[in-house]
């Protein structure tokens, strides 16, 4: 009994310690004098592997989710004779919720796991250690560009997701189910507020980007440098990243729209 309590306490201490380590890690990676000549090419390289390579999955997923929403929404709304509100329903649910959250989850699965695995592999093959021995800080050379790339990419991906999703919803709603195009758009435009809905959706995306990328690079950097450790870091990134997104989404939604 006593031993169990002890092990719970030890586990708790471990968690708190690793949180502290991750904060120090982020601070050391990001706080320094910027050197655009060397940093910019690294950032562009990472924007490519983190952002551009995630584009396809985001576009495809957004398109299908928009179409499904329109289809489902129509079948419900048509019972109340309110199918004109389809545009509003599709747009609001995508811009405020599904866009940031689903793109964040996909990003954690696609880019986050890749980041953690890549950094873990660099650690296991002593690339990080050799960089340190060459006199270059891997936190600046490897971690920082990946972090910034994630921070820039996810909000852009989230907005692309939303735009494609609404387009997909329109295709199904207007072209297939025959909702009037004019009322579809005007209903949407009167219901969606730029500041309240669109900007808050983007803010959510930015928050998710920070959390997911942070988890990914830290898990990779902090992993046990063996193949088992890398696979664990990859799994942890997806699991922790997804849970963090969903939890944070609730908190942010409560803060943003709770008083309405």
């Amino acid at each position: 009994m006593l031993r169990q309590i002890e092990s719970i306490g030890a586990r708790g201490l471990e968690v708190v310690e690793s949180i502290g380590r991750s904060v120090v890690f982020l601070y050391q990676s990001l706080v320094r004098v910027p050197r655009p000549r060397t940093s910019l090419p690294l950032l562009i390289q990472q924007l490519y592997s983190v952002g551009v390579l995630s584009l396809v999955i985001i576009v495809v997923a957004g398109f299908f989710i928009g179409m499904v929403l329109a289809l489902q929404g129509y079948s419900i709304l048509v019972r109340f004779g309110a199918e004109q509100a389809l545009g509003q329903m599709v747009a609001l649910s995508i811009v405020m919720e599904l866009g940031p959250v689903v793109s964040g989850l996909l990003f954690a699965g696609r880019a986050g796991s890749a980041l953690a695995a890549e950094i873990g592999l660099m650690k296991a093959t002593e690339q990080l250690a050799s960089m340190e021995m060459i006199g270059v800080d891997p936190l600046h050379q490897v971690i920082a560009p990946r972090f910034w790339a994630g921070l820039i990419s996810l909000p852009l991906l989230g907005m692309i997701f939303s735009a494609v999703g609404i387009f997909g919803g329109m295709l199904v709603g207007v072209d297939w189910l025959g909702v009037d195009s004019g009322s579809f758009w005007s209903n949407m435009q009167s219901a969606v507020d730029f500041h309240r809905d669109v900007l808050n959706g983007v803010i959510k995306s930015i928050a998710f980007a920070v959390v997911v990328t942070w988890i990914a690079v830290f898990q990779g950097y902090d992993c046990v440098p063996t193949s088992e450790g890398i696979s664990r870091a990859t799994t942890n990134t997806v699991v922790y990243g997804s849970l963090a997104i969903l939890g944070l989404d609730f908190v942010l939604t409560a803060l943003m729209f709770g008083d309405l």
């Binding site: 907005m159 735009a163 435009q189 983007v202």
Partner: peptide, 16 residues
């Protein structure tokens, strides 16, 4: 594309 998506959301969707 990201910036265009933002403009699309702002103009077409929220009617700004």
């Amino acid at each position: 594309i990201g910036v265009l998506a933002f403009v699309y959301l702002a103009m077409r969707v929220s009617g700004l």
